[in-house]
Structure formats: C-alpha cells, structure tokens
Write a protein that binds this DNA or RNA. Structure first.
Lengths: 183, 183
DNA sequence: AAATACTTTAATACCAGATACTAAATTAGA
DNA sequence: TCTAATTTAGTATCTGGTATTAAAGTATTT
C-alpha cells in the first residue's frame, strides 16, 4: 500500500467524520483524485454510500437514545470461555470522551470491564455485588482498550472476577468484581 | 375533492409520521393506489421525497448530537455545590436493564455515581483514579435512583468522594472514589 | 343522456448517487 | 527494465425519485 493511499484514506475518514453528508464527487474534489478512487477507498474501508449513511444517522437519531444507552454491551467480545476467561476490545470514540481533553470517561472503561466480568459467569442472570477498581492512567480517544478477565475464585453462587484492561501492553485499568449468579 | 382522496391523504400523513422512511412504492401498496397517486398526494401535501426526508432528519439530529455530547451525563444533576456535595437522579429506563430480568446493569449505577463524583471536583478536568464500590441490591426498571455525594477528604489535587445511591430511602449502591484534579 | 370537471393511472424522459464490472493508463517497487 | 500495485476511465444497471403529457375512470351538473 502506497503512503499516498493510506494517507488519503485517513483524510477521507476524517472528512466523513466531520461531515458524513459528503458525496463521492465532493470527496473526489476535496482529495484531488478521481471519483473511482474515492469509491475504491470507501470500499476498502467498508464505508457505505451517502444514502446508507444518511439512513443510519436518521434512523439512529429516530430512536433518540444516548450512546451508553443504545449499546447493549460496552466493548466487543473477541474471546469468551464462559466460566473461565474472556477478552473484550473497546475502541474509545469521541462520544466517550470529555470535551476539553480527549480523555475517556471512567465509567466507559468500567462498563467494558463490568460487561465482560458479568458475561464470564455462565448463568442466565449475573449481578455485580462489589468491586474494587483502579484507573492507572487516562485513556485517550482512538485508543483500543483490551480487557482480559478471568474467574479467580468461585464459591456457591459467588464469583470473583479479575479484569485487567490494557492499551498496547500498558495497563490502564484493574478491577476485582464480586459477582452473584442468580438461577 | 372526493372523500376517498382526503381520507387517503390523512392516512398517508399518519403512515409517514409513524415511519418517515417509507418509499412511494411502499406507500402505494399500503394505500392500495398507484404510485402516481401517492406522488400526487405528496405533492398536494407538500411532503418531500424520501431522500429529502432522510436528509432533514439526519441533519436535524446531527446538530443535536454534538449538543448531547456536551452534557452526556448519566443522571440529572438536581443539586450541586462544587467542592462540597451534590445530588443526582437517574430514572432506570428499559435500555439500561438486562433483557430477561428488569434489573439495571451495574455500570449505569456506577456511571451516575462517577459522573456526580467527578462533577463535585471543581476543576476543568477531573479523572477517577481508584474506586471501591458496592451494589447493595438490584435496581429495577422504572425505579428512581437518587445519588448523594460529598467530598470526604482532600489533599493537594486528590479528592476522596463518597457516593450513596438510594431508591426510596433504601441504599442500593455505595462507593468511594479517589479523584484527581488536573489543572 | 351528454357534457364537463375532477381523480386516478399510465407512460416516458430525465436526474443523482450510487453499484458492479471490465479495461486501460499510470506509478512504484524489485 | 519488468512487474505489480494503484489509479482512472467507461459502461451497464439500480433506486427512488421529478417533470410532463396523455389517457382512462368517475362524479356532477346541466
């Protein structure tokens, strides 16, 4: 991949993030390339056409739910062995950060860990009882948080789950969750 | 104007109010008339085409999105004395609960407390360092959670904030947050 | 019943903003 | 220099329309 291509694709993303209502034609002019190249780039980045983007924005806003509200889970489960361990990835988006800085709100990091911890417990319903958590350093917009969790102890319907969240091998969060399984 | 026409136009409006993402074709089938009649009706009612409707909804919401981002707090601040204490109310909605039961996800309760704790610290940026939290009992859909927070200790740029969340005088959550103020 | 007006349907040409595909031209890397 | 990646071009096709003209169908009135 040429440097021009990846740089252009980055730009394209930035333009569309700023203004998702741009046509391929407008993008082509802005980037100084042909419309075919723009389409090829969009395809490579799996960005849908303008009309679908409009549909998404429109439909998304039609439900009118806030970011944390509409997400069932915070983070994407990439590996899960119920009853043992699991891994979840969360890419920190603009909505999760404070305005002035680009630092993620603590409760998103917590939410990711909590979701993962709860999903480890292999029952219909699991509830967090207590938790001791620690944010090691701020996480910035765009960073990928990888949370790893494992069940460290189990007694009756009580589970102790330890979660460590990292950004590129640097621990940014640690938590110990006591979780109750409910039958 | 025949009664059939005005009745149909009323129906058309109702359908579009319910779901503005309907094509003329779909409307024609729903109303049992030809597509031309639908277009004529839309013209008479000066209802724009689907794509323009989408654009409007999308653009209209796009301004609001950034406005919502600014004050994306979990919970409503009802009382706040920065540097001392504050109260926040959160009504648990369907989106915050698990599907099977009607129990609120722990991280919403945490998020409310965390937001409140951070807002108590009267600086531009405040970050949660560590927290020790405890969920006393599940919270159900529709319940109003009242979180009260106060700064229990302060040293340099470190604040210890204690939060107690209640549902009708019953404590459902307690937390101790160590928060860093950043200049 | 016939003439007139209103309503509905049909048909055609055209547009924006795309997809899907083929192919040629350009550029960069070995 | 030759090859492979990248970019551009061109064409056919799609959706969901607009705009226009024309032809039916249905009342309404005279």
């Amino acid at each position: 991949m040429s440097p021009g291509k990846s740089k252009r694709q980055e730009l394209l993303c930035r333009y569309l993030e700023e203004n998702p209502f741009l046509t391929d034609n407008e993008l082509a002019h802005m980037l100084g390339v042909s419309i075919q190249t723009v389409r090829l780039d969009r395809w490579g980045l799996s960005i849908p056409e303008l009309r679908k983007r409009l549909r998404e924005v429109a439909k998304g806003s039609y439900g009118q739910v806030s970011a944390l509200q509409k997400e069932e889970w915070i983070g994407d489960l990439v590996d899960l062995e119920p009853g043992s361990q699991g891994v979840s990835i969360l890419e920190v988006s603009e909505e999760m950060t404070l305005n002035s800085t680009k630092v993620a709100r603590g409760h998103y990091i917590f939410a990711q860990a909590n979701c993962l911890a709860v999903s480890l417990v292999n029952t219909k319903v699991a509830l967090t009882g207590t938790a001791k958590i620690s944010f090691k350093r701020p996480v910035y917009c765009g960073e990928k948080v990888i949370a790893r969790a494992f069940i460290s102890r189990k007694k009756d319907n009580k589970f102790i789950v330890r979660v460590t969240s990292k950004v590129q091998d640097e621990t940014i969060f640690q938590g110990k969750f006591l979780i109750f399984a409910i039958a």
